[in-house]
Design a protein around this nucleic acid. Structure first.
Ligand SMILES: [Zn+2]
Ligand SMILES: [Zn+2]
Ligand SMILES: [Zn+2]
Ligand SMILES: [Zn+2]
Lengths: 163, 163
DNA sequence: AACGAGATGTTATAATGTTTCAAATCTCGT
DNA sequence: ACGAGATTTGAAACATTATAACATCTCGTT
């Protein structure tokens, strides 16, 4: 099959990483935000796959790097990357994933495979619209929206290429 | 105003609590699930307001009760209550709130006021439908859905009855 | 009484995230 | 180039949230 989104099928993932880093540099340059080595390294690590990583996972890899970092180092880098729309935190996983719409101001949702752990980020105008209608009906002013759908990706549903 | 949902305006909240406990007894009876004193007490505490409580908040109140409980006690009660559709966990807050659709199998969403902390649980067929469409388009099989909207409730937006 | 399943108690530990203050680095105007 | 001020990073301690493992209790059944 080929209509599947990237995380669900083999692809040239180094292109994903390269694109993400390039976008990040562009975004940061345009905002006068400093993509320092630590921040860039954390972003690169997050992009090593489409599976979200926890802060302490990142910390462990940094330790392998020989970089003796403490938790605040990672959390600060993650804060920066979130502020600048480069990564998202997945609340239901306590983990972080690279944003596929770097720099765009967007409301997105995540399809999270409970089997292979890959996450697909999507923007879904229909969902956003429906949510806005609900909020409006309750006179509620939305600011931050978390939409996370856990389930099975196409690959894991039939057969199960668990990776 | 009066179109506002319960959490957003003064109301006879003890009726909320009473209803919740009554529903819980009914649901548990029909399922042969045992609503033990601890479980009922935790449910009652969660329902003391429309603001979600953390597990350790509950633990602290139990301590005041004179009940010297350890974390597993509370987490086990919460697990039970979640299993039986009596409470929800709010992932973005690491906290728990009473379910307003006890026993019904439902996909719900939460409007979370960042100011007064009250949470409104809603079922929104339009949102659910839109999400299903998105999932289907990606050949994704949804199982658990987390929808949490943080923002300002009507009360806090104008004036700010922060409670 | 003996048993077994479910529920609770108890202790320890894991996993995630924050506060605080000091030191290093960068920025920018002079 | 220089130095004041801001930003970033280092480091240690701590806070919060959640689970693992095993012992004990409760209560209905045999
Ligand atoms: Zn990729
Ligand atoms: Zn999968
Ligand atoms: Zn109420
Ligand atoms: Zn409010």
């Amino acid at each position: 099959m080929s209509a599947n989104a990237l995380p669900y099928r083999p692809h040239n993932h180094s292109a994903c990483v390269h694109q993400a880093l390039t976008d990040a540099r562009t975004v940061c340059a345009s905002r006068q935000a400093r993509l320092t080595p630590i921040r860039e390294r954390v972003l690169e690590l997050i992009w090593q796959s489409h599976k979200p990583l926890g802060a302490y996972d990142l910390l462990a890899v940094l330790a392998e790097d020989g970089h003796n970092a403490a938790p605040p180092t990672v959390y600060r880098a993650l804060d920066f990357l979130q502020q600048n729309g480069l990564v998202h935190r997945i609340a239901s996983l306590n983990a972080f994933t690279g944003c596929t719409h770097a720099g765009e101001n967007h409301t997105c949702l995540f399809l999270i495979c409970r089997c292979c752990r890959n996450v697909l980020e999507l923007t879904a105008p229909g969902v956003t619209r429906a949510l806005n209608e609900v909020s409006e009906a309750e006179a509620f002013t939305p600011e931050e929206t978390t939409i996370e759908v856990a389930g099975l990706c196409p690959g894991c549903k039939d057969g199960g290429d668990h990776d």
